[in-house]
């Protein structure tokens, strides 16, 4: 019984914490000059923030994946990324 409850608690802990982190602070908006409150502006700020955060990472990720695919096409096999360091070092 206790084990089930504990498992339930550990399973719920993550989503609950995430919800607390994401939602609860919304109650704390105490900006005297923001008469707008809940306008589209706030939603757009959050939306564009997420967009602008993700975009550079997606662009670089896309280029890296494209180059990797191209490397595979040009050189046949993908160059092992560690081959340079793991060549046997001969001791002179």
């Amino acid at each position: 019984m206790g084990a089930v409850r504990r498992r339930l608690r550990t399973r719920l802990a993550g989503p609950l914490l995430a919800a607390a982190v994401l939602v609860a602070p919304g109650r704390a908006l105490a900006c005297a000059v923001c008469a707008a409150g809940e306008t589209n502006n706030r939603a757009e700020f959050i939306l564009t923030t997420a967009f602008m955060t993700a975009l550079p990472l997606l662009l670089v990720g896309g280029v890296v994946l494209y180059l990797r695919a191209r490397a595979r096409r040009v050189h046949g096999a993908p160059p092992s990324p560690t081959s340079a360091l793991e060549e046997p070092r001969r001791v002179a």
Binding site: T39, N40, N41, E44, F45, L47, T48, M52, L55, P56
Partner: peptide, 16 residues
């Protein structure tokens, strides 16, 4: 990225 910045700015102001 330049145009992404402009579009984001546009959306924010439009939302206002």
């Amino acid at each position: 990225m330049l145009f992404a910045g402009l579009i984001s700015a546009f959306l924010v102001v439009k939302g206002l």
